[in-house]
Computed example of a mutant assay.
Amino acid sequence: MLAQMIMLVAVAGAAVLAAQAPASASSSLVPPSSLSAATTAPLRLRGGLTLDLPSSWRVYGGGDQIRVVTGACARPRGHYFEPNCRSFWVMGTQAIKTGGEGFQPYNPNQGPFYPAVDVAPCATDPALGQVLGKAVTAGYRAVGVGHKARYLVWPGRCVRGNGAQQSTFSQREWYLPKERILIVDQWNTPGLATVLKNATWS
């Protein structure tokens, strides 16, 4: 099963993400005029969405696959299933097209964001596989003024090859279908919900 997981990671990495580089200060991160650069920096996204991120968070990638690293991270330029990287993802149209299980289009009514065909490694331990259950929370949450995202929380289990559970996590998703933006967080990132609630649109 471990061999299958390793193969899956390679396939998912190729299908979900191209090689990433940190976002440059001139493109995605520009110090806001009303706040100190040491406090926050705006991340400008598709559809006119801007997120004011804490300055300690780092942005990698661009376009339809952006990883925001919020803490310790072994390989910030890694693919979606890269373990040991405290972060969340902002996905766009292309990632959403293959974001469902089996690389089907992502559909929050059918399941979580899970671009895989087999058991993917757990975010906290690559020796364990992740298994996502049925959504335990489903509703809508504000992303800035006048925009509501479909909000879902999927319970996750980190299991050994024999199915024995070692730990749990939650996969939180905010989906804006009109703008084709999906935010995915497996780390229960402190402050992320507030960042999204305080987002601005232009």
Rank of each mutant, 00 (worst) to 15 (best):
50 T>I: 11
21 A>G: 11
44 R>P: 01
40 T>Y: 12
202 S>R: 06
199 A>L: 07
194 T>K: 10
41 A>H: 07
87 S>D: 10
161 G>R: 06
85 C>E: 03
157 R>F: 06
157 R>C: 06
56 S>C: 07
71 G>L: 05
182 L>H: 09
177 P>N: 08
109 N>A: 14
87 S>M: 05
134 K>C: 03
33 S>Q: 12
37 A>E: 11
197 K>Y: 10
119 V>K: 04
114 Y>P: 00
85 C>P: 00
193 A>K: 02
138 A>P: 02
107 N>C: 03
143 V>N: 03
78 G>A: 14
69 V>M: 08
93 T>F: 01
110 Q>P: 00
18 A>T: 10
51 L>M: 10
20 Q>P: 01
17 L>F: 05
28 S>P: 06
171 Q>P: 04
65 Q>S: 12
67 R>L: 01
12 A>I: 03
103 F>N: 02
131 V>P: 03
163 G>A: 13
48 G>R: 09
35 L>K: 13
199 A>V: 08
5 M>H: 00
64 D>L: 08
112 P>Y: 02
98 T>Y: 00
70 T>Y: 03
9 V>L: 06
61 G>M: 03
125 D>E: 15
181 I>V: 15
149 A>D: 10
186 Q>F: 04
167 S>D: 11
183 I>C: 04
45 L>D: 02
18 A>E: 09
14 A>R: 09
86 R>N: 14
61 G>Q: 05
108 P>D: 13
166 Q>S: 11
16 V>Y: 01
123 A>V: 15
186 Q>R: 07
71 G>T: 09
94 Q>P: 01
47 G>I: 07
52 D>L: 15
54 P>T: 13
51 L>C: 07
173 E>C: 14
171 Q>N: 06
193 A>F: 00
72 A>L: 13
63 G>Q: 14
118 D>R: 05
104 Q>G: 00
113 F>D: 02
15 A>P: 00
131 V>Y: 13
140 Y>F: 13
125 D>H: 09
53 L>T: 03
142 A>S: 15
82 E>M: 08
79 H>P: 07
